[in-house]
Amino acid sequence: MSRLALSLRINGETHEVLTAPHRTLLDVLRDDLGLTGTKENCLEAECGVCTVLLDGRAVNACILLAAQCRGRDIVTIEGLASGGELHPLQRAFVERGAVQCGYCIPGMILSAKAYLEECPEASEDGIREALAGNLCRCTGYQKITEAVATAARELYGGRTTQ
Protein backbone atom coordinates (compact mmCIF):
# COMPACT_ATOMS: atom_id res chain seq x y z
CA MET A 1 0.00 0.00 0.00
CA SER A 2 1.28 3.45 -0.84
CA ARG A 3 2.29 5.78 1.94
CA LEU A 4 2.27 9.56 2.12
CA ALA A 5 4.96 11.49 3.92
CA LEU A 6 3.20 14.28 5.81
CA SER A 7 4.48 17.13 7.83
CA LEU A 8 1.88 18.06 10.44
CA ARG A 9 2.03 21.05 12.76
CA ILE A 10 0.38 19.98 16.02
CA ASN A 11 0.37 22.09 19.19
CA GLY A 12 3.14 24.22 17.75
CA GLU A 13 5.42 21.29 17.01
CA THR A 14 6.10 19.73 13.59
CA HIS A 15 5.63 15.98 13.26
CA GLU A 16 6.78 13.96 10.24
CA VAL A 17 4.47 11.01 9.67
CA LEU A 18 4.28 8.32 7.03
CA THR A 19 0.70 7.19 6.54
CA ALA A 20 -1.67 5.51 4.12
CA PRO A 21 -3.67 8.17 2.25
CA HIS A 22 -7.07 7.05 3.54
CA ARG A 23 -6.20 7.52 7.21
CA THR A 24 -7.89 10.28 9.17
CA LEU A 25 -6.35 12.93 11.34
CA LEU A 26 -7.92 11.08 14.28
CA ASP A 27 -6.09 7.84 13.32
CA VAL A 28 -2.78 9.64 13.09
CA LEU A 29 -3.23 11.59 16.32
CA ARG A 30 -4.27 8.59 18.39
CA ASP A 31 -2.49 5.64 16.81
CA ASP A 32 0.72 7.15 15.42
CA LEU A 33 1.42 10.07 17.74
CA GLY A 34 -0.14 8.77 20.98
CA LEU A 35 -2.21 11.94 21.39
CA THR A 36 -5.18 10.10 22.90
CA GLY A 37 -6.67 13.21 24.50
CA THR A 38 -8.57 13.49 21.21
CA LYS A 39 -11.28 10.89 21.71
CA GLU A 40 -12.89 8.35 19.39
CA ASN A 41 -16.54 7.35 19.25
CA CYS A 42 -19.03 7.52 16.37
CA LEU A 43 -16.54 8.14 13.51
CA GLU A 44 -19.37 9.87 11.61
CA ALA A 45 -18.97 13.45 12.86
CA GLU A 46 -22.10 13.18 14.98
CA CYS A 47 -20.82 13.13 18.56
CA GLY A 48 -17.95 15.64 18.61
CA VAL A 49 -15.60 13.78 21.00
CA CYS A 50 -12.83 13.98 18.37
CA THR A 51 -13.02 17.77 18.04
CA VAL A 52 -9.69 19.53 17.39
CA LEU A 53 -8.84 23.01 16.18
CA LEU A 54 -7.73 23.36 12.56
CA ASP A 55 -6.47 26.87 11.87
CA GLY A 56 -8.48 27.94 14.91
CA ARG A 57 -11.77 26.36 13.84
CA ALA A 58 -13.36 23.41 15.63
CA VAL A 59 -13.50 20.36 13.35
CA ASN A 60 -14.20 16.64 13.71
CA ALA A 61 -10.90 14.81 13.30
CA CYS A 62 -12.74 11.55 12.50
CA ILE A 63 -13.81 12.68 9.04
CA LEU A 64 -10.77 14.73 8.14
CA LEU A 65 -8.03 13.00 6.18
CA ALA A 66 -4.62 13.52 7.69
CA ALA A 67 -3.42 14.52 4.24
CA GLN A 68 -5.84 17.49 4.24
CA CYS A 69 -4.01 18.93 7.25
CA ARG A 70 -0.64 19.46 5.61
CA GLY A 71 0.66 22.93 6.27
CA ARG A 72 -2.19 23.81 8.62
CA ASP A 73 -2.18 24.52 12.30
CA ILE A 74 -3.68 21.79 14.51
CA VAL A 75 -4.41 22.19 18.22
CA THR A 76 -5.44 19.25 20.39
CA ILE A 77 -6.38 19.21 24.07
CA GLU A 78 -2.77 18.38 24.91
CA GLY A 79 -1.79 21.79 23.51
CA LEU A 80 -3.89 23.92 25.86
CA ALA A 81 -2.24 23.88 29.25
CA SER A 82 1.10 25.67 29.21
CA GLY A 83 3.94 25.33 31.67
CA GLY A 84 1.83 23.22 34.01
CA GLU A 85 -0.84 25.94 34.16
CA LEU A 86 -4.34 24.98 33.10
CA HIS A 87 -5.96 27.12 30.39
CA PRO A 88 -8.78 29.26 31.88
CA LEU A 89 -11.33 27.01 30.13
CA GLN A 90 -9.79 23.93 31.68
CA ARG A 91 -9.70 25.56 35.10
CA ALA A 92 -13.33 26.66 34.81
CA PHE A 93 -14.40 23.13 33.83
CA VAL A 94 -12.67 21.79 36.95
CA GLU A 95 -13.96 24.45 39.31
CA ARG A 96 -17.56 24.59 38.05
CA GLY A 97 -18.05 20.83 38.31
CA ALA A 98 -18.49 20.53 34.54
CA VAL A 99 -16.61 17.23 34.31
CA GLN A 100 -18.17 13.85 34.94
CA CYS A 101 -16.93 10.86 32.93
CA GLY A 102 -14.87 13.37 30.97
CA TYR A 103 -14.83 11.60 27.62
CA CYS A 104 -16.54 14.49 25.80
CA ILE A 105 -14.61 17.16 27.67
CA PRO A 106 -11.55 17.62 25.40
CA GLY A 107 -13.88 18.20 22.45
CA MET A 108 -16.12 20.48 24.48
CA ILE A 109 -13.21 22.62 25.61
CA LEU A 110 -11.86 22.98 22.07
CA SER A 111 -15.28 23.85 20.63
CA ALA A 112 -15.63 26.43 23.39
CA LYS A 113 -12.18 27.84 22.68
CA ALA A 114 -12.96 28.31 18.99
CA TYR A 115 -16.24 30.01 19.88
CA LEU A 116 -14.76 32.38 22.47
CA GLU A 117 -12.00 33.45 20.08
CA GLU A 118 -14.64 34.32 17.52
CA CYS A 119 -17.18 35.77 19.99
CA PRO A 120 -15.47 37.05 23.16
CA GLU A 121 -18.77 38.56 24.27
CA ALA A 122 -20.22 35.14 24.79
CA SER A 123 -23.90 34.67 25.58
CA GLU A 124 -25.56 31.55 26.96
CA ASP A 125 -27.42 31.05 23.66
CA GLY A 126 -24.18 31.50 21.74
CA ILE A 127 -22.35 29.01 23.94
CA ARG A 128 -25.13 26.47 23.55
CA GLU A 129 -25.11 26.89 19.79
CA ALA A 130 -21.33 26.56 19.64
CA LEU A 131 -21.43 23.31 21.63
CA ALA A 132 -24.44 21.80 19.85
CA GLY A 133 -22.20 19.43 17.91
CA ASN A 134 -20.64 17.97 21.04
CA LEU A 135 -22.74 15.29 22.71
CA CYS A 136 -22.43 14.82 26.46
CA ARG A 137 -24.45 12.13 28.18
CA CYS A 138 -23.43 12.83 31.78
CA THR A 139 -23.96 16.50 32.55
CA GLY A 140 -27.03 17.78 30.75
CA TYR A 141 -24.65 20.55 29.57
CA GLN A 142 -25.65 22.97 32.33
CA LYS A 143 -22.38 23.13 34.24
CA ILE A 144 -20.46 22.98 30.96
CA THR A 145 -22.29 26.06 29.74
CA GLU A 146 -21.63 27.79 33.06
CA ALA A 147 -17.94 26.88 32.90
CA VAL A 148 -17.58 28.37 29.42
CA ALA A 149 -19.30 31.58 30.59
CA THR A 150 -16.97 31.70 33.59
CA ALA A 151 -13.89 31.29 31.38
CA ALA A 152 -15.20 33.93 28.99
CA ARG A 153 -15.43 36.41 31.85
CA GLU A 154 -11.89 35.59 32.94
CA LEU A 155 -10.44 35.69 29.43
CA TYR A 156 -12.30 38.66 28.03
CA GLY A 157 -13.77 40.34 31.09
CA GLY A 158 -17.03 42.00 31.64
CA ARG A 159 -20.45 41.33 30.56
CA THR A 160 -20.89 37.68 29.69
CA THR A 161 -24.22 36.45 30.90
CA GLN A 162 -24.89 32.98 32.18
Binding site: E40, E78, Q90, V94, G102
Partner: peptide, 20 residues
Amino acid sequence: RLPRLDAPGKVTGTAVYAAD
Protein backbone atom coordinates in the same frame (compact mmCIF):
# COMPACT_ATOMS: atom_id res chain seq x y z
CA ARG B 1 -18.49 21.77 47.02
CA LEU B 2 -14.97 20.52 46.32
CA PRO B 3 -13.65 19.77 42.80
CA ARG B 4 -13.45 16.08 41.96
CA LEU B 5 -10.04 14.46 42.29
CA ASP B 6 -9.80 13.20 38.71
CA ALA B 7 -10.83 16.43 36.97
CA PRO B 8 -7.35 17.76 36.02
CA GLY B 9 -6.49 14.60 34.07
CA LYS B 10 -9.81 14.73 32.27
CA VAL B 11 -9.54 18.37 31.16
CA THR B 12 -5.96 18.00 29.91
CA GLY B 13 -6.52 14.80 27.94
CA THR B 14 -4.05 12.85 30.04
CA ALA B 15 -6.64 10.60 31.70
CA VAL B 16 -6.45 7.21 29.99
CA TYR B 17 -9.71 5.48 29.09
CA ALA B 18 -10.06 1.88 27.97
CA ALA B 19 -10.56 3.04 24.38
CA ASP B 20 -7.19 4.86 24.62
